[in-house]
């Protein structure tokens, strides 16, 4: 059965607190922390972007898989912050990882679900037998407009998954996608910051698609919420995944290990993939795992996964998500944040 042969994640080492951002705009930090359930978020340096995050996560995935880069037949990068509007991120990632040149490379974009979209296609290519291994990455250096609710969550990071047929660390039991045209969040070509429909991003967008995809995959596999040890939902803030989980019948025990958003923020395409990586850091053999992403526009991908005996043996070969979230990090002021995120106008 095809599955995930290796996985890895990367989270930049700078942080800004919700409190620091709230203070900047004269908001009450406590209200926002409680409302969004966010403590802090990762901030990329000038020298970090979707490409560098993908390379770091991809390198960890290859290390855990123990697979030669030459056997990787496809590289897909899902992001809504590809550094180039025209010119692939994936070519840099593939070359840096020593993959190719006989390799299929593409960049994916589907708001916050570009990562699982890449995973979906990578898995299908492996299952079809067209390639031995396919690397799928979800990574972002997310943008949120100043003083917008998104500014508290939009963060940087990502995760990579190497799909293969032989010796997976995690088997893929089934997948499903649920997609409609729902304009809840968008960024037009040439615009710097995305825009969104406010509360319209909730019920008709996030909750509808996550619920539909999850319910449908449970029906399709004949599994019930209590059959799963872990579940990961896309994390636009702290609250949404807890609410949707509760309404679907999942417990905090199932959600918490992959609920990385309170200290990582929303890494957009990297959000649910990084949550999944955090789950793989702790899952035991035969544990069932459910992940449902959400991408504005809108759609959700669901995967049912089962951990194998190889997972505990291999995960020590790269850093865990929690070690990156809780490990060495530097807190920046809003001024430094504005500089790093190029929100300050300077001369050429």
């Amino acid at each position: 059965m095809a599955g995930i042969a290796g996985y890895g994640a990367f989270i930049p080492r700078r942080r800004i607190t919700t409190e620091e951002i709230a203070r900047q705009w004269g908001k009450d930090p406590g209200t926002i922390q409680r409302g969004l359930m966010l403590k802090e978020k990762s901030v990329p340096g000038f020298d970090e972007d979707t490409i560098t995050i993908s390379v770091a996560a991809g390198r960890a995935a290859l290390a855990r898989a123990g697979v030669s880069p030459s056997r990787v037949g496809a590289v897909y990068i899902g992001s809504e912050s590809h550094p180039y509007a025209v010119k692939p991120s994936g070519t840099v990632v593939a070359e840096a990882l020593g993959i190719g040149p006989e390799v299929h490379v593409a960049d994916f974009e589907f708001a916050c679900k570009a990562g699982t979209e890449a995973m979906f296609v990578a898995l299908a290519l492996v299952e079809s037998g067209r390639v031995d291994y396919a690397l799928a990455v979800g990574a972002d250096t997310s943008q949120g407009a100043p003083d917008d609710a998104l500014e508290y969550s939009a963060s940087a990071g990502g995760a990579a998954f190497l799909f293969g047929r032989d010796d997976p660390l995690v088997e893929v039991v089934d997948t499903i996608s649920f997609t409609t045209d729902t304009p809840d969040f968008w960024r037009r070509e040439g615009e710097f910051y995305p825009r969104h429909g406010g509360r319209f991003t909730g019920e008709p967008a996030y909750f509808k698609h996550v619920t539909e995809a999850t319910t449908r995959i449970l029906d399709k596999t004949g599994l019930k919420p209590e059959d799963f040890r872990f579940v990961v939902f896309h994390m636009p803030n702290g609250k949404f995944p807890l609410s949707v989980g509760k309404s679907l019948g999942f417990t905090r025990e199932q959600i918490d290990p992959g609920w990385v958003v309170p200290t990582m923020g929303n890494t957009y395409s990297g959000s649910s993939p990084t949550g999944l990586a955090a789950v793989l850091d702790v899952a035991d053999p035969d544990d069932l795992i459910l992940i449902t992403s959400f991408g504005s526009g809108a759609g959700s991908d669901s995967f049912v996964l089962r951990a194998t005996g190889l997972l505990p043996q291999r995960r020590g070969l790269a850093p865990s998500v929690r070690s990156m979230l809780d490990g060495p990090r530097r807190y920046v002021t809003y001024g430094e944040y504005a500089k790093y995120r190029e929100k300050i106008i300077v001369n050429d």
Partner: peptide, 26 residues
């Protein structure tokens, strides 16, 4: 692997390596 320099606002992005403190792992 990091973005080392950019050629102005519209030019190519130039990647390479930077050192970071070696953190213990696992």
């Amino acid at each position: 692997f990091r973005l080392i320099r950019r050629e102005g606002k519209g030019g190519i992005l130039c990647y390479g390596y930077k050192a970071v403190p070696a953190y213990p792992m696992g």
